[in-house]
Design a binder for these strands. Structure first.
Length: 211
DNA sequence: TACCAGGAGAAAA
DNA sequence: TTTTCTCATGGT
């Protein structure tokens, strides 16, 4: 699966679980901080479901501390890991249809719509739109002002229909492009004339929200 | 020093 | 049902 920045695992099961861990840790957090937490877990040889479940809360919290919100993320990561392991890991989860998987994910403490769809798309390779802040903002500024207020499920369904239900690989590619474009825009300081995907970057402060 | 970053759950209104 | 508050570190 393209784009999702996961790099420690060497097999499909490990990679899928690493993506799920990243999806929890990246909640309201810059990805660079998540990378540090993932590196800590890898260095401690704890980047696996059974290994995380064998850690006590204090140790796990210390390992993921760079990702911020480390106390609540310790609980959320443990809940997700317990559910993942209980379901039989990647192999067990792949036997279920997408709607059922999504409901199952949303029932896990600490897994909301975006985190569930990150896991569905990148770890389980299911064709779903990930409606993160960048995606919502992009469509809003492309001339769909109702995007900001529309409920997550409705927006995700509408986008899937409007884009003619593309493959998971294509959806992952598009989502990756949106995120990378948002980041690159802000890095390209001299050329940045206002970033359409960022609320207020250092160069686009005060820009018209309508784009 | 202040603000922001790929949210989610709980509490309050 | 919707809105607000809380959680927290690291970079700019």
């Amino acid at each position: 699966m393209p784009w999702w920045p996961a790099g420690y695992a060497r097999d499909a099961e490990g990679r899928a679980f690493e993506i799920a861990v990243g999806a929890v840790l990246t909640q309201n957090t810059n990805w660079k901080n998540v990378e540090k937490a993932l590196a800590n877990l890898h260095a401690a040889e704890a980047l696996g479901a059974t290994r995380i479940l064998n850690l006590d809360d204090e140790t796990l919290a210390e390992l993921i501390r760079p990702s911020g919100f480390y106390r609540i993320k310790t609980r959320r990561l443990r809940a997700m890991t317990t559910a993942w392991h209980g379901a039989g890991g990647l192999h067990g989860l792949q036997e279920h249809p997408t709607p059922g998987l999504r409901d199952w994910l949303l029932g896990i403490h600490g897994v909301g719509h975006e985190t569930a769809d990150d896991i569905l798309l990148y770890a389980l390779e299911r064709p779903v739109w990930v409606i993160d802040t960048y995606t919502r903002r992009l469509f809003h500024r492309l001339g769909f002002p109702e995007t900001a207020a529309r409920k997550y499920d409705q927006l995700a369904d509408d986008l899937l229909t409007d884009t003619h239900e593309p493959s998971a690989a294509r959806l992952a590619g598009w989502h990756g492009l949106i995120v990378e474009h948002a980041k690159a825009h802000c890095r390209a300081k001299p050329a940045c004339g206002g970033c359409p995907l960022r609320e207020r970057c250092a160069h686009g402060k005060g820009m018209d929200p309508g784009g």
